[in-house]
Lab assay of single mutants.
Amino acid sequence: MKVIFLKDVKGKGKKGEIKNVADGYARNFLFKQGLAIEATPANLKALE
């Protein structure tokens, strides 16, 4: 799953980066902790 990092995550990505991560890791950790959001077209446009 492609995500946009909202904060730096050690070993995974830095704020503003778009990367592929495992679906479960994204849903169960990154999204719940507020560290990333899904890289949807609307979210990508908002990032610009």
Rank of each mutant, 00 (worst) to 15 (best):
K10P: 15
F5D: 00
D23A: 14
I4A: 02
A36I: 07
D23P: 14
D23Q: 10
K32Y: 08
G34I: 02
L44Y: 03
K14D: 06
K2M: 15
L44G: 04
I18E: 03
N20V: 15
M1H: 06
F5L: 07
A22I: 08
E48V: 12
N43R: 07
F31Q: 04
K12I: 15
K14Q: 11
N43Y: 06
A42Q: 12
K45S: 12
G24T: 12
A22G: 10
L44T: 06
D8H: 08
G16L: 05
L35Y: 10
F29G: 05
L30K: 00
L44V: 13
K2V: 12
F5H: 00
G11F: 07
A46G: 10
F31T: 06
G13Q: 02
D8R: 04
E48F: 10
V3I: 11
G13K: 01
K45H: 13
G13W: 12
P41F: 09
P41D: 13
L47H: 10
I4D: 00
G24F: 14
N20S: 14
K14V: 10
N20M: 15
N20R: 14
N28G: 10
G13M: 04
L44N: 04
F29N: 08
A36D: 00
K14H: 11
N20A: 11
E48A: 11
Q33H: 15
G34H: 07
K45N: 10
F5Y: 08
A26W: 12
N20E: 15
G11Q: 05
G11M: 05
G11Y: 07
Q33F: 15
L44I: 15
Q33E: 14
K32M: 13
V21P: 00
K15E: 08
K15S: 09
E48Y: 10
M1S: 05
K10G: 09
L47F: 14
D8W: 07
A39E: 02
L35T: 03
L35K: 04
D23V: 14
L35Q: 03
K19P: 00
K19Q: 09
E48R: 11
T40M: 04
K10Q: 14
E17K: 03
T40R: 03
K19D: 03
K12Y: 15
R27Y: 12
N28A: 10
K2D: 10
F5V: 00
E48P: 07
F29S: 07
V21Y: 06
A42L: 09
R27L: 14
L35D: 03
K15R: 13
L6P: 00
K14A: 09
P41K: 10
G16A: 05
F29M: 09
R27P: 04
K7Q: 14
P41N: 09
R27H: 11
V9I: 08
L47W: 14
E38K: 08
K45D: 10
Y25G: 05
G11V: 01
F5S: 00
I18W: 02
F31V: 10
D8V: 02
A42V: 09
G34D: 06
K45I: 14
L44P: 03
L44Q: 07
K14W: 08
L30R: 00
N43P: 02
T40W: 04
T40S: 10
N20I: 15
F31W: 02
I18L: 06
A22N: 14
G34Y: 07
F29K: 09
A26V: 11
N43Q: 06
M1V: 13
A22Q: 14
E48W: 07
G34K: 09
Y25E: 08
L35R: 03
I18K: 02
L47V: 10
F29W: 13
K32I: 14
G11I: 01
D8S: 09
Q33A: 11
N28S: 08
F29D: 10
N28I: 07
F31I: 14
V21H: 01
M1D: 03
K32N: 12
K10N: 12
K7P: 01
K7I: 12
V3N: 00
G11H: 07
T40Q: 03
R27N: 10
R27M: 11
L30A: 01
A22V: 09
Q33I: 09
D23R: 13
L35H: 05
F5P: 00
K12E: 13
K2I: 13
I37S: 03
N28D: 15
I18M: 06
K10V: 13
A42Y: 06
L44W: 03
K19N: 05
K7D: 07
D23S: 15
I37P: 00
E38M: 09
A26N: 04
M1E: 04
Q33W: 15
M1T: 14
A42S: 11
G16V: 01
K12F: 15
A39R: 01
G34W: 06
A42I: 09
V9R: 01
E38G: 04
F5Q: 00
A39L: 05
A39Q: 02
N20Q: 14
V9H: 03
R27T: 10
A26F: 14
K7H: 13
A26R: 02
P41S: 10
A36Y: 00
D8T: 11
A39M: 05
L35I: 07
E38P: 12
N43V: 07
G16D: 05
N20Y: 15
K2Q: 12
K15W: 04
F31R: 02
K15Q: 10
G24S: 15
F31A: 02
D8P: 04
K12D: 07
L6Q: 03
K19Y: 07
E17P: 00
D23E: 15
L6S: 02
A22H: 13
T40K: 04
K32S: 13
K15A: 13
K14P: 01
A46M: 14
Q33Y: 15
I4L: 09
Y25H: 06
V9T: 04
K32W: 08
G13N: 03
V3L: 04
P41R: 09
K2R: 14
A26E: 13
D23N: 13
A36W: 01
E17Y: 02
L47A: 08
K14S: 09
K19L: 11
G24I: 10
I4T: 01
A26K: 03
L30Q: 01
A46W: 15
F5K: 00
A46S: 12
K45T: 10
P41E: 15
I37N: 02
M1I: 15
Y25S: 05
K7A: 12
Q33L: 15
E38D: 04
I37R: 05
P41Y: 09
E48Q: 13
G24K: 12
G24R: 11
D8A: 06
L30N: 00
Q33D: 07
E38F: 04
G11L: 05
G13D: 02
E38H: 06
